[in-house]
Computed example of a mutant assay.
Amino acid sequence: MVKDVSYEYDKKKVCKKVKKHYKKYDPFLLKGMEVALKRIITAVNAREKIVIYGYYDVDSITSIAILLLVLRYLNADVEYYIPNDENIERTLRSKDILNHIEFLGTDLIISLGCGMNSHKEIELCKELGIDVVVLDTEKTSVDRLDAYVINPNQDSCSYPFKGLSFVGLTFKLVQALSRYYKLKSFNKYVDLVMIGTTASEVDLSDENGIFFTEGIYQVNHTNNYGLKALMKINDLKQISEDNVNQLIECIIPRVNPIGKMDNAKIVVELLTTTDLLRAEQIAKYLHKEANKE
């Protein structure tokens, strides 16, 4: 059954972009969540090598950052991979699997928004002994993947809200992990969820509205060193619905002269570092890059 939790906002915190009343849903209403979670838990507990595979836009970068932070907290053996070629399709790539991911000794790939059309690549992973969890929101009629799929838009998924961004869907996985491991502070990542959700330009209704409004509040009380450093160097003393896009613009990866998305990995480091000095160094670099003539 749907976990029907009414959510009433304090009037002082309500943003004009969203309504005042929404529902939160149980992450286990997502088809495939339970079996995917079991596979991830096995990998975490056995210290199997996990590689998070994502894309270089802000929605995907924040997804990677949140999952990386949570899995590191759980002492998982985890790394991430972002292809750095501009304008690639949102799929797993055989050359990445063979040249990088297999080399790491990977046991499990968690693909964030890159797997629904990757039949051949997932078959390659199976041949190499690598399991794949696919988180995606794409509406597709492709045949069933030989993978653990979490997608609110797949056939016979009863999840009530179909409009989640990639980072919103990733946060639902984090909620499920938090329930199993009894983590009480996972909601602190809603600032990153808000940034990715806003950048993705999905409709800010239903759960997206919760993420937006809670995230606006959380980002102004954040303990994320990267966000603090970005706000400081860009003189953003208070984030609101009116200036949140200024914060997002600070972390949009930029293309270098040879068409590579170098900044994507730097932004992931910024959002996941536990070193305040390093966060300030990266924020200064990104600020300088963004203000080049």
Rank of each mutant, 00 (worst) to 15 (best):
V51A: 14
C114R: 05
S111T: 03
V134P: 06
A290R: 15
L270R: 13
V193N: 09
K12S: 15
T274E: 15
R144K: 13
P83D: 06
E241A: 07
K172P: 01
K139I: 04
N45P: 00
E249D: 12
S63W: 00
C125L: 06
E102C: 12
T274G: 12
L270Y: 10
V5Q: 15
K172C: 01
K3S: 12
E293F: 09
T106Y: 05
T42R: 14
D191E: 15
L247P: 03
I40S: 13
I210V: 13
K16S: 15
V78Y: 10
N224S: 09
Y148E: 03
E89V: 07
L204V: 05
L71R: 03
G196Q: 00
V78G: 15
E214L: 11
E207P: 00
Y56M: 05
C250E: 04
P257K: 13
D242I: 04
K284G: 09
L92T: 04
P152W: 11
Q218K: 15
L169D: 02
R179G: 01
Q175K: 11
L30W: 06
K288F: 08
L29F: 04
G129M: 03
T106A: 15
L247F: 06
K24W: 13
R72L: 14
I82T: 10
S141R: 06
N153M: 06
K17N: 06
A279I: 00
T140D: 12
K265A: 07
K162N: 02
R254C: 02
C125R: 03
A36E: 02
D57F: 01
E8R: 10
A65I: 01
D59S: 02
I50M: 09
D59C: 03
Q238G: 03
I258M: 12
L230A: 06
Y53C: 01
K126M: 06
I122A: 08
S63R: 00
R93Q: 14
V35H: 14
V142P: 05
G115M: 02
A43V: 00
T273K: 09
T197Q: 08
G32M: 08
L74R: 11
N151E: 03
E127C: 05
D206Y: 09
V167D: 09
N117P: 01
T273R: 08
N117C: 11
S60G: 11
L277K: 14
L124W: 09
Y25M: 02
D131T: 01
V134D: 03
G196Y: 00
H21G: 06
F186T: 02
